[in-house]
């Protein structure tokens, strides 16, 4: 024992030293480090769960977005189709209205022109009757004698009286 150097006091001192090491390291090293490792482990686990949840949410949102896009596309196509139909119908209506208006305008123009034509003819006739009467008056006054003129007037009065009698009957 002596040759090996075993001394009870030193042995006790080393036992106490090691016990101090165990206690101090437990408080100073293992507890905080293991606590931190556990905390980090928990945080990582929580974050993984959260990430998984977010991933699922993202997938759902992607699907929803796709659905909305598809619906919007469908609706857009329908609106375009409807607009095309509406435009086509309105185009036809406008053309029909234009046709109608042009026909009306043509008809009115024709009527107006006919009226003007009639009026002009009437005026021409009147004018020509007046001219003929003036000419006849000048000719008759130079050609016929006053007795012939009286005979002619009497004949015409008689004709007028006959015409009037016929009208009365």
């Amino acid at each position: 024992m002596e040759q090996l150097g075993i001394e009870p006091k030193l042995l006790l001192a080393q036992i106490i030293n090691f016990c101090i090491i165990v206690v101090v390291l437990s408080k100073l090293l293992y507890k905080p480090i293991l606590g931190m490792l556990e905390k980090r482990k928990k945080e990582i686990a929580d974050n993984l769960v959260l990430a998984e949840k977010l991933h699922t949410e993202e997938e759902k949102l992607k699907l929803k977005r796709q659905e909305v896009i598809d619906a919007a596309k469908q609706e857009g196509l329908m609106v375009i189709e409807e607009a095309k139909k509406q435009a086509s119908k309105e185009g036809k209506d406008i053309v029909a209205e234009a046709h109608k208006q042009s026909d009306e305008t043509i008809r009115r123009a024709k009527a107006e022109s006919e009226r003007i034509y009639e009026e002009t003819q009437m005026n021409i006739r009147k004018e020509s009757v007046n001219v003929a009467a003036a000419m006849a008056k000048r000719l008759l006054s130079s050609i016929l004698s006053p007795g012939d003129q009286r005979k002619l007037i009497t004949m015409h009065i008689k004709e007028i009286e006959d015409f009037a009698k016929k009208q009365q009957n």
Binding site: G5, E7, K9, L10, A13, Q14, N17, I20, I21, V24, L25, L28, L29, P32, I33, M36, R40, E43
Partner: peptide, 30 residues
Amino acid sequence: FPINNALVTTWCVMAILIIGSFCATRNMKE
């Protein structure tokens, strides 16, 4: 109380371990 050279080295080892532990954990961060 007898003091031998191994005991002195033991104290040095204890000091190294305790100071090292203190330095490693005094300002712990995520």
